[in-house]
């Protein structure tokens, strides 16, 4: 192996590393987009994408630094850096929008199902630490409000907010049978009410979430 080979070797490895960082960035954004779509369309709260968001937030911090650094030195480079700043800022806005909408959708579901989530170990695991704190505090405030405003005036037997017996359960749970739109990545089959439904690759279907939940989780199907 002579010097040139080593050099070439070095070049290709560094280039492939660059390229892999590049694809990771692209994949991460796609993953975030898909996570957002899933939260919006699927009835239950999904596990919080902690690592993914951590990576993206870190990159966002770098971009903000870049913007701050360059807007100070704006006079020097003039034009080109201005355009670059516009590009960086617009992308930052786009990613921020995705994250914000993702988080808000989760909060909406957490508000809606908080009593159920709090009583269920597995559901609790899906929340981030911040979300758990938020849910507890929100629920405390709500309970206190209800108690002060009217519950204390009711007979004790009617004061519970999480009564499960009888015909109607007071605790709101996500309706897992709600239909969702999905696109299949491969041929397959699902059972719905004893009926076999054959799935074609690339086919677009509407069916209840409970039937396709596992396939979505495995990634052989994407929600739309």
């Amino acid at each position: 192996m002579d010097f040139n080979d080593i050099l070439k070797d070095f070049e290709t490895t560094s280039r492939s590393r660059l390229r892999s960082d590049d694809t990771l960035r692209t994949e991460d954004l796609q993953a975030l987009t898909q996570a957002w779509i899933q939260e919006r369309t699927i009835p239950e709260v999904l596990p919080y994408e902690e690592d993914l968001l951590e990576r993206i937030l870190e990159r966002m911090r770098k971009q903000i630094e870049f913007i701050e650094l360059n807007s100070i030195e704006l006079q020097k480079h003039e034009r080109e850096i201005k355009l670059l700043l516009v590009i960086v800022e617009s992308e930052l806005d786009r990613v921020q929008f995705l994250i914000r909408s993702y988080v808000r959708t989760r909060l909406m579901k957490i508000d809606q199902f908080s009593v159920y989530i709090r009583s269920n170990e597995q559901e609790l695991k899906k929340l981030s630490d911040n979300e758990t704190v938020y849910m507890e505090r929100h629920l405390d405030l709500l309970m206190e409000l209800y108690n002060r405003q009217f519950l204390k005036n009711l007979p004790e037997s009617l004061q519970a907010l999480d009564e499960g017996g009888g015909l109607v359960n007071m605790v709101e749970k996500p309706d897992l049978h709600k239909p969702v739109f999905v696109k299949c990545g491969e041929n397959g089959m699902v059972m719905i009410e004893g009926e076999e439904v054959e799935l074609e690759k690339e086919g677009i279907y509407v069916m209840r979430y409970s039937a396709v939940k596992e396939l979505v989780k495995m990634g052989s199907m994407i929600v739309l």
Binding site: P179, F181, E200, G203, I204, Y205, V206, R208
Partner: peptide
């Protein structure tokens, strides 16, 4: 109430029928 197949529709076309389809399917179920 079981399922519906709509191959070939694009995303915005799906989005247009979505509220109607979801509501009806859920109610039929």
């Amino acid at each position: 109430e079981v399922y519906l197949q709509l191959d070939g529709l694009s995303l915005i076309e799906i989005n247009e029928v979505r509220p109607f389809v979801l509501k009806v399917m859920n109610q039929l179920r």
